[in-house]
Design a protein around this nucleic acid. Structure first.
Lengths: 240, 240
DNA sequence: CGATTTGTTGATCTTACTCAATAATCGTGG
DNA sequence: CCACGATTATTGAGTAAGATCAACAAATCG
């Protein structure tokens, strides 16, 4: 257990990067955590992990693939809440009400770990550092949500797309994947929905960013050519 | 300890409605919780509870008055994250990083309780129901933030204001205050900032809602005349 | 009581949405 | 493997919701 990034895969069979603080839990404690984790069978594209209205019993950690989480509003419209990548935890929003108020759908073939919430409550009552870590995970989710709020309240379409791509780039980087070349697992309509933009706007801005030489997009494949410029786009600064 | 609403004031000197589950903690446990709470001196309008960049050491519970929480973006602009009323907890977003990434400013004469975070970690490791409750409080904050995301991503200016006022109305009701007549502690510019709207738009929609007979506004005093109609405004339904 | 901040209203402009048409991609079955 | 329809993405033209600019009114404060 070195002081490597907490995003490093570390947690035995479960791969719970987010759930484990490599330098905070003993090997024995990690075994205990592993023992409560259920490894689920892979999800196919379009399959649901949980549905709005279902009773909450577990949180989930993405092992591979990617999961889209969304709510359904009064008119039955989807509102995308977030996209979850390997190592990230889903379902934290249901702990309070014990009912899922959102739906989680696999965007590609994915595998997830199921972690019964009761077991987390039990185990974190005995493993002090697990409790501490859960508080941090929940707190981080709050901060991530607040950043999105700022994006939606204040930023232009171009800034939103720029920030969205930068965010993805950073998250892939943390997972030791290419930060400049990756595949968008979600549809344009999901991006638009998430960022509060029309599909057409998403499309137009992708092409605009291409024209500017910031990146290339071919279908779902993105290559970031000028990360610095993209960062400027995300922060409403002029690009040379 | 009856099964009264968890919003009922219950927690000895601290008034921590949110922090206490009346029916889940024993009287002795409540005493323990009370003992870690520091009662702070009142804050004057405009005073800061904590500032962006400061080291995080405590969370705070509003006892009376109201607190505005906002971040500062790249250009030094405020982005309002939320308004906190009596019984609500602030500072949860800093647990992860141990640094305040936002600023909390009193909107009127307010009093707050300071609760050292280390003590919460300690106490929730021994009081099982406090741990359970903290998870729920954090989870609820996540869900509240997600609802705002939906508001910002999808709703029109009128719907946002409608939902904002309905939300305030409900929160006052939970606090046993009038749900139809209350004072807006924040400036119009704060409302606009929070909802992603220009001040002028907020103003215009207030007058429009008045013309529609849904409510009356006089400065900061609001009276909701037709709560049903306001609810419809908030949910993009036609108002008769 | 004047000065400064805060709120309202009007006129104009801009961004991003809507509608519409076309193109590309995906999935399925022959 | 290719052909088919269906979904998804791109591009264009017109529109609308809300922003911005500007002037004025009202409230707040010293």
């Amino acid at each position: 257990m070195t002081n490597q990034s907490k995003f490093t895969v570390s947690c035995g069979q479960c791969g719970l990067n987010e759930l484990c603080l490599p330098h905070a839990l003993t090997a024995q404690e990690i075994d205990q955590v592993d023992s409560i984790v259920k490894r689920s069978k892979p999800l196919q594209r379009g399959e649901y992990l949980y549905n709005t209205g279902e009773v909450f019993s577990s949180i989930y950690a993405v092992r591979s693939g990617s999961i889209k989480v969304f709510t359904i509003d009064d008119e039955g419209e989807e509102q995308v809440i977030g996209f979850y990548l390997p190592g990230e935890l889903l379902g934290l929003d249901a702990i309070d009400s014990k009912l899922h108020m959102s739906t989680a759908k696999s965007m590609e073939t994915s595998s997830v770990c199921e972690i019964p919430y009761d077991s987390i409550e039990d185990l974190s009552a005995t493993i002090r550092n697990l409790q501490v870590h859960m508080y941090r995970v929940l707190s981080r989710e709050i901060r991530v949500d607040q950043e999105l709020q700022m994006l939606l309240a204040k930023k232009t379409a171009e800034e939103r797309i720029g920030a969205f791509l930068m965010n993805l780039s950073l998250r892939y980087e943390q997972r030791r994947l290419s930060s400049t070349r990756f595949r968008l697992p979600m549809a344009r309509s999901d991006i638009g929905n998430y960022l509060g933009l029309a599909v057409e706007t998403v499309s137009r801005i992708f092409t605009r960013l291409q024209t500017m030489g910031v990146l290339t997009v071919e279908g779902k494949e993105v290559e970031i050519l000028d990360r610095n410029a993209l960062c400027n786009v995300a922060h409403s600064r002029e690009v040379a």
